[in-house]
Design a protein around this nucleic acid. Structure first.
Lengths: 321, 321
DNA sequence: CGCTCGGTTTGACTTTTGTCGAGAGCCATG
DNA sequence: CATGGCTCTCGACAAAAGTCAAACCGAGCG
C-alpha cells in the first residue's frame, strides 16, 4: 500500500468527518477527491483504529446480578452478557462484550498478558482495531501445534495487530516430554526473561479450560484423555494458560505441570487486572477454581453462568446483596 | 424524559448497532420497535456519550513543527492545527483539535481544573459527550459576572455536563475591592478547601489572556483599561485563570493579584498535565510568558502561532531540531 | 515500446440512515 | 371524565453512505 500520502489523507478525512462533523461530500470537496474515496478512507480509518468507536459497557455492570457477584466473590468488576436467546449466537454475545471490556481496560503504555483458547481467539477476531501507543502484548504460555487456528502465538499476535501494539511471542513449546528438558528450557535467558516479565503486566486476558476429554490440552495432544482422567482423579479442576489447577486454584502437583513452559500462577496473581472470560457452561467448575485461586479480578460471563456462580456462593452471600 | 426504560433501550440499541455491527433495521426488529426509533436512540446514545467516537490526534503531533516546539520549550506534547485557510473558520479548527486532545488526556477517576475564557467555552461547546466515571471538574478561579456567556462557572459546568462528571464550582467572586476582604474570603473553609484541592488535579485546561484594553478582565469589568495600562507598564505580560503574570510567568506583585480568588500559580504547576490552548495570534506574548513560567506542559496552537514561537525560541533551538 | 499487474479513483447504482409531521398513549388538571 | 399538553412512536420521504465494476495510473518487465 502507498505509505505516506494515503495515511495522511485517511487521517485528514477521518478528522474532518468525525471530529468536525462534515458530511462525506463536504470532506470530498475539501480534499479534492471523490466522495467514494472518502467513504473508502473512512472505512480504512475505522479498520486501522484511527477512529475509535466504543460503546460503554456500563449497562452490563449495572446489573444487580453483577453487583452481587462482585460482592460474593470479591471481584473488582463483573460484566454479564444477557442470554435472552434472541441473538443468533449467544456465545458471540459474550465475546463481543469481552472485547469491549478488554479494550476499555487497556491504557496507553500497558503491558498485556494473553493466554489462548477458542474464547480468546474469538475475542481477538471480533475486537475492533485501536491505535494505542506503547502497548506490548505478551504471550503467557508456550506454544502448541494446535489442530485449530487458535494457537497461543496467534492469539497474541492477532490481539497485538488489532491494537497496533508490539507482540512478544514465546518461542518455546507449551509442554515437553521430560521435566529436565522443561527445567533447562526455562533456565534459557530468552525464556527466563519472558517468564519473569509476565508479572510486570498490568492486564491479563485469559479463559479457563476444562479437565475432561474435551479439554483443549487433550485435543491439542498435550495430554491423552486417559492421562487427563488420572489427573482429574488427582484433583485437577481446570486449566489456566495451559497449566492444571486444583479446586483451590493452586497448580496441581503433577508431572505435566512440571513439564510445561508457562506463566507461574504467582506471576499471574501479581498482574493488577486479571480479566477472565468464560463462554461455555461446562466451564463452571474450572471457573470456580480459578476464582478461588485469586486468578480473576475482572470477569465476563453469561447470565446463566452468573446465576450458577451466585447459587454456588450460597444463600449467605445472597443475603448480603 | 422517561427515566429508566428509555435509558435501557438506548444502551441496548447502541450496543447492538455499534458493538455487534447490526444494521438499524435489524436492531429495530430485535428490539421490536421501529427503525426510526432506533435512529433516534442512536443519536441520543452519541449525544450522551454512551458511545464514544474519537479520532486519533496523532496526525497533529506527528508534525515536525510540533516536535521542534516540544524540544525548544521542553513541553510534553504539542498539537498544531493546520491553518491552510481552506476551512471556513480557522479558529474553530483549533478548538475542535483542543477538544479532542482534552478528551484524550482524560482518564477515569481524574480531577480536572478548568479556567475560563472564550476559548475554553468554545471548546466546551463543541466537545463531544463522554461517559467518564468518577471524574470531577473543578473551577480554577472565582466568578465574574461577565457580559458574555462564558462565565467561569459556566465553563466548568458545561464541561462537567459533557463528561457526565461532577462539577465543583467556586462560590466566590474572582476579584474583590479590597485586599482584606480577599484575604478573609480565601480563609473561609469552603473556599480554602477548594483552593487547596486544586493542586490535586491531574489535568488542567486553560488559555491565556492578553493585557491590553481588549483583555477579558477589562471587558468584564475586573479592571479598567487605564488600570490595566498601569499594570502593563509594571510588567504585566498575560492573564492566567484571572491572574496577572509577568514575562517570566510569575504572579505580578500588584494590588489586583492580591484582591483575587483564584488558583495559586504554584498549585497549577503541581498539576501533572497543564493543557494550554491558544487561538488568537494576539496572545503570543502572554503564551510565551505562561510557558516561561512553567504553566504549560501540553499545548494546542495554530500553525502560525507555532512558527512564531519557534522563531522566538531562536536559531539555536532550531538547530537542535 | 507496449504490456500486464497492483493499486487507487471514480461515477452510477443500491442500500442504509436521518428527519419530519402525524398520530397514539399518558398523565395531570380543570 | 373530557381536555390539553407532553412525550414517545411510527411511516414515508429525502438525504447520505456504502458498493461495485470500470477506468485510470504508474512501475516494472519482456
Amino acid at each position: 500500500m502507498a505509505i505516506r500520502p494515503a495515511e495522511q489523507l485517511i487521517h485528514k478525512a477521518a478528522w474532518l468527518y468525525y471530529a468536525h462533523g462534515l458530511r462525506q461530500d463536504q470532506v470530498a470537496s475539501q480534499l479534492k477527491i471523490s466522495r467514494a474515496s472518502v467513504a473508502m478512507y473512512l472505512r480504512k480509518a475505522r479498520e486501522t483504529g484511527i477512529v475509535n468507536i466504543s460503546t460503554s459497557t456500563q449497562l452490563f455492570t449495572d446489573d444487580v446480578l453483577a453487583r452481587q457477584l462482585e460482592d460474593a466473590f470479591k471481584l473488582d468488576a463483573v460484566w454479564i452478557a444477557p442470554e435472552n436467546g434472541h441473538v443468533a449466537d449467544p456465545s458471540t454475545d459474550i465475546a463481543v462484550l469481552a472485547a469491549s471490556v478488554f479494550l476499555e481496560l487497556i491504557k496507553k503504555g500497558d503491558r498485556i498478558g494473553v493466554a489462548w483458547g477458542r474464547t480468546i481467539y474469538t475475542i481477538a477476531d471480533i475486537m475492533s482495531y485501536a491505535d494505542l501507543q506503547d502497548v506490548t502484548v505478551v504471550q503467557l504460555c508456550g506454544n502448541l501445534g494446535a489442530p485449530y487456528s487458535y494457537r497461543p502465538d496467534q492469539c497474541t499476535m492477532e490481539i497485538a495487530r488489532r491494537l497496533n501494539a508490539k507482540g512478544l511471542n514465546f518461542y518455546a513449546p507449551l509442554v515437553l516430554t521430560t521435566e529436565e528438558l522443561a527445567r533447562g528450557l526455562r533456565a534459557e535467558p530468552v525464556i527466563r526473561e519472558q517468564l519473569s516479565g509476565i508479572s510486570e503486566c498490568n492486564l491479563a486476558l485469559y479463559s479457563v479450560g476444562t479437565v475432561d476429554a474435551d479439554s483443549h490440552v487433550v485435543k491439542c495432544g498435550a495430554l491423552t484423555a486417559s492421562e487427563m482422567e488420572v489427573l482429574r482423579r488427582a484433583g485437577a479442576a481446570g486449566v489456566i494458560a495451559g497449566q492444571i489447577i486444583d479446586a483451590q486454584g493452586k497448580a496441581l502437583d503433577c508431572s505435566y505441570n512440571r513439564r510445561i513452559i508457562s506463566a507461574e500462577l504467582s506471576s499471574l496473581r501479581k498482574i493488577e487486572k486479571r480479566l477472565v472470560v468464560v463462554q461455555e457452561d461446562s466451564k463452571f467448575g474450572p471457573l470456580v477454581a480459578a476464582i478461588a485461586g485469586g486468578l480473576c479480578t475482572h470477569l465476563v460471563v453469561g447470565a446463566r453462568m452468573a446465576r450458577r456462580l451466585l447459587d454456588h456462593a450460597g444463600p449467605a452471600a445472597e443475603k448480603v446483596a
